[in-house]
Nucleic acid binder design. Structure first.
Ligand SMILES: Nc1ccn([C@H]2C[C@H](O)[C@@H](COP(=O)(O)OP(=O)(O)OP(=O)(O)O)O2)c(=O)n1
Ligand SMILES: [Mg+2]
Ligand SMILES: [Mg+2]
Length: 834
DNA sequence: GCGGATCAC
DNA sequence: TATGGTGATCCGC
């Protein structure tokens, strides 16, 4: 219905001129920004209303949705022929259910942008001036807190899965290859990226882009093993390093750099790996085309020119003499040449095939070194005392240990370090000097999309305001303050000021655990329940492995049309057994099946998540009553005993969540103490096996009482929806629940679907009565609510909403507390199943 | 607390 | 033929 008026984004417009330009020094300086007068610059592109007017839609209308277009925001993807690639993607996708759903989502984003622009039109210069004062106050505070004292590093393995596969099958090295399957790719090597083949792209599309592409399946065990090897190294430099995935981590070298002053030369010397001995020079070890054995490092004539700067060659050479007689010892290692990278940092866009293949001007020097290596070979390298050298050392050790290369970024904060690690990727590193000028110069022309946390949608929204780079972002700070929530505008402000977290925070406790699977269409209720049961069993296993229990069960459904819907239901006590989880999940599922009757619920994916987690061991285990309670809910429907299969191609689902890395020496735990009195349910599965031929027997209190449970699960019925003040309020109920469970030990219980409190019931009638009371309470509450809203018509200012993933502020983890209280006009998207 | 969306990897 | 899985955060109810 709404899919007609789609705005097409101009993707190709500025392509080709964007690449890597952001790194070049620019003459205009940011330090003039804080003089408070730079608003004048805004006047250059303002309309009568004083606000920027930028069109969102594509004047050329060449038909590429931004959502469908190639996402080239990735290392090794500069200078591609995007027009051709997007055409192939489009032609291959057009007409598919996936494509149609993407169109729908695109239309929604366009609506959001339109709403934002409407708000924009209503903003007066006066408002903006006031906002500017406010925002500049904030900016001043932020400026005062600027901190250059930390040496933060972000390290990221190059083409990780693909590199592992190439290492173990050298015949792949000179071919474009990807890891995954015809349905989905996990990643690709740099050779394949030249064709536009990248992670999260379906294999069959990748094959159209690059018919010679070799696709190999995943081996998660290997990736995990490599990850462990890498983490073992990182832990020696910062015991509090923070892994963000199997292939990357943040860490802080500040302390290590202090301690390092005391280290002997031997302690700064590391052997080449056995694999790297005589026969093969490092050069061709790594992935064939991307070997670029000459590490791409900045050439800084000005850095510690002494022994240290010389990085590999000199530095290594210095102690070579001690360790290895050969003076010339041709730096075989990848990190050898010092000054190579800077000259080539600006890629030659005209020749994409060579641009990122590492076949660069440095090549000559490399081969030169390699030649020397043949005659006399080094057994080890010694590293100096600067940050750069430490990071070189880490990357060297990683490569010698795993035969895989990594790239790294060094900066005074996490946000910048992350961007830097991509800059000289693959097999390179980049440092931003820890002073304001260097940092500001780095940031000013930086496209906002490079910043972690700014994704496709945010990029489009900001683009609609004429914001492309960080300079724009700063100049429009007043507007952003008016249009976005406090947390978002402050986030933007921090980015534009090149500020980020200066601490790498330890992994926080997990907040949820989930499992989901894509499958060929299922629509028969028995199959759906069976799948649900499998998922619950798998989830329960994972939960028990980590000794976790939780109170909120959420199911996720994706229809064959790719529409996603989630349904949640919280129960008063923490659970983690398959039976308990399933008893809740199946009711949620049943309601959805019923809701779209008489049409079948046609799904391509189902998921189950448990949140509101607590540690099982920390909680009081009151099995008795809870067990009884859940026996009532328990349903034998699907005792298929099967676990969901992992995704055949990406192998996802096999990489089970693991307890966090073992390297952490000790973290003075100040974990928030959980409510130690919560009840844990550990229900021994004593359920009778049952053929999963049909809908589960409705043994749960829900259906015992009300055959049409649609109206009674608190999360399903709209009319009795939760209200934070009363009905479904957990906080309040927790204490009550404890009382109930304590008092009710040994008695039979039903869970009231309205208040969610287990009711000790001797008979069904009493329970029904209780439910009626709750229902009335709910009705009254709704009435009061309605009345209140009539009395007090929404005096809320409109604000553009921006749902963000990941970090709200800057650090690897953050918790922003305050939220803006303004609301957007209600927009209900209840198009599901319609 | 719930549901939708965005984001990263 | 064919478009993933896990976890987190934010917004508006
Ligand atoms: N959408 C994605 C992105 C990544 N990955 C996996 C495969 C990658 O190898 C690994 C690391 O992700 P990166 O973003 O670091 O990508 P690569 O390491 O593959 O390439 P590079 O870091 O060189 O750009 O995570 C995935 O499964 N799905
Ligand atoms: Mg990587
Ligand atoms: Mg990564």
């Amino acid at each position: 219905m709404d899919a007609e008026d789609i705005d097409w984004k101009d993707e190709d417009e500025d392509e080709g001129e964007n690449e890597e330009r952001w790194n070049e020094p620019v003459e205009s300086l940011l330090e003039t920004r804080n003089d408070g007068l730079q608003e004048a610059s805004l006047s250059s592109n303002v309309g009568d209303d004083g606000n920027p007017s930028v069109s969102t839609s594509d004047a050329r209308g060449d038909g590429m949705m931004s959502r469908m277009a190639l996402n080239d925001n990735k290392a090794g993807m500069d200078g591609l022929d995007k027009e051709r690639i997007n055409k192939i993607i489009l032609e291959t996708s057009k007409g598919s259910r996936f494509y149609e759903n993407e169109r729908k989502k695109e239309a929604q984003v366009n609506q959001r942008i339109d709403r934002m622009k409407q708000q924009l039109a209503g903003i007066t210069q006066q408002q903006k001036a006031a906002a500017l004062v406010e925002v500049d106050t904030m900016a001043a505070e932020l400026e005062a807190s600027r901190d250059f004292s930390r040496s933060i590093v972000h390290l990221d393995m190059d083409a990780f899965y693909a590199a592992v596969e190439m290492r173990d099958n050298p015949s792949l090295k000179n071919k474009p290859m990807a890891v995954g399957g015809m349905s989905m790719l996990s990643t690709s090597n740099y050779h394949a990226r030249r064709y536009g083949v990248r992670a999260a792209m379906p294999g069959f599309i990748a094959k159209k882009l690059c018919p010679e592409l070799v696709i190999v399946p995943t081996n998660f065990d290997k990736y995990r093993a490599v990850s462990t090897q890498v983490r073992e190294i990182l832990g020696q430099y910062d015991p509090n390093f923070c892994p963000m995935s199997l292939d990357e981590a943040y860490f802080d070298l500040t302390e290590h750099l202090e301690k390092r002053k005391e280290l002997s030369e031997a302690e700064r010397t590391f052997d080449y790996g056995d694999w790297n001995s005589q026969s093969e020079p490092t050069n061709d070890v790594q992935e064939g085309e991307e070997k670029d054995s000459v590490g791409k490092t900045q050439s800084h004539g000005d850095i510690s020119e002494q022994d240290s700067t010389q990085e590999s060659c000199v530095c290594g050479g210095a102690n070579d003499e001690t360790l290895s007689p050969s003076r010339m010892q041709a730096e075989v290692s990848s990190n050898t040449s010092v000054a190579c990278r800077c000259a080539e940092s600006t890629n030659n866009a005209s020749d994409p095939c060579h641009a990122s293949l590492g076949v660069s001007k440095t090549e000559s020097s490399t081969s030169h070194c390699a030649v020397g290596a043949v005659t006399s070979r080094k057994r080890s390298r010694t590293f100096g005392f600067t940050v750069e050298e430490v990071v070189e050392e880490i990357r060297f050790r990683i490569e010698q240990k795993t035969q895989l290369t990594a790239s790294a970024g060094i900066a005074p904060n996490v946000m910048l370090a992350k961007i830097c690690s991509d800059k000289n990727k693959p097999n390179g590193q980049y440092r931003i000097q820890p002073d304001r000028e260097a940092v500001m110069e780095f940031i000013q022309q930086l496209p906002i999309r490079k910043v972690s946390g700014i994704g496709k949608v945010t990029e489009r929204m900001l683009s609609a305001l004429g914001i492309q780079n960080c300079t724009d972002l700063y100049q429009q700070r007043a507007l952003l303050h008016l249009l976005f929530s406090q947390i978002s505008s402050q986030h933007f402000l921090r980015i534009s000021m090149a500020l980020g977290s200066t601490r790498v925070e330890r992994d926080s406790e997990r907040k949820s655990m989930s499992t989901e699977r894509t499958f060929r269409e299922l629509h028969k209720p028995a199959d759906l329940y069976s799948k649900c049961s499998e998922l619950c069993q798998a989830l329960a296993e994972d939960l028990q492995n980590e000794d976790l229990v939780g109170k909120t069960v959420t199911i996720k459904l994706k229809t064959v049309k790719f529409e996603v819907k989630t349904k949640a239901c919280s129960v008063p006590m923490a659970i983690n057994s398959a039976d308990c989880i399933f008893s809740v999940a199946k009711d949620l599922l049943r309601a959805e099946i019923n809701a779209c009757k008489p049409e079948p619920l046609r799904l391509r994916l189902m998921g189950v998540r448990l949140s509101n987690l607590q540690s099982s061991s920390a909680s009081t285990n009151k099995q008795g009553s809870i067990k009884e309670f859940f026996k009532k809910r328990q349903n034998p429907a699907a005792q298929s005993g099967q676990l969901p299969e992992v995704h055949q191609e990406t192998g996802n689902g096999y990489e089970k969540p693991r307890s966090q890395n073992t390297m952490v020496a000790f973290s003075s735990d100040s974990p928030k103490k959980r409510t130690g009195s919560d009840v844990v349910v550990t229900l021994p599965s004593e359920s009778e096996p049952q053929p999963s031929t049909s809908e589960p027997q409705t043994e749960s209190p829900f259906s015992q009482v009300h055959p049409s449970d649609r109206n009674f699960c608190p999360t399903l019925g709209d009319r009795i929806t939760d209200d934070s003040t009363t009905g479904n309020n957990h906080r309040r109920d927790e204490s009550a629940m404890e009382d109930v469970s304590n008092d009710a030990i040994g008695t039979s219980e039903f869970l009231c679907p309205v208040c969610n409190i287990p009711q000790p019931c001797t008979d069904l009638e009493a329970f029904n009565e209780h439910v009626d009371v709750c229902l009335n309470r709910g009705a009254i509450r709704d009435m009061l609510k309605q009345q209140a809203s009539e009395d007090n018509p929404t005096a809320s200012r409109n604000s553009t909403s921006l749902a963000k993933g990941k970090r709200g502020s800057s650090g690897p983890k953050s918790s922003a507390k305050r939220r803006k209280q303004e609301k957007t006009q209600t927009n209900t998207l209840d198009r599901f199943f319609n």
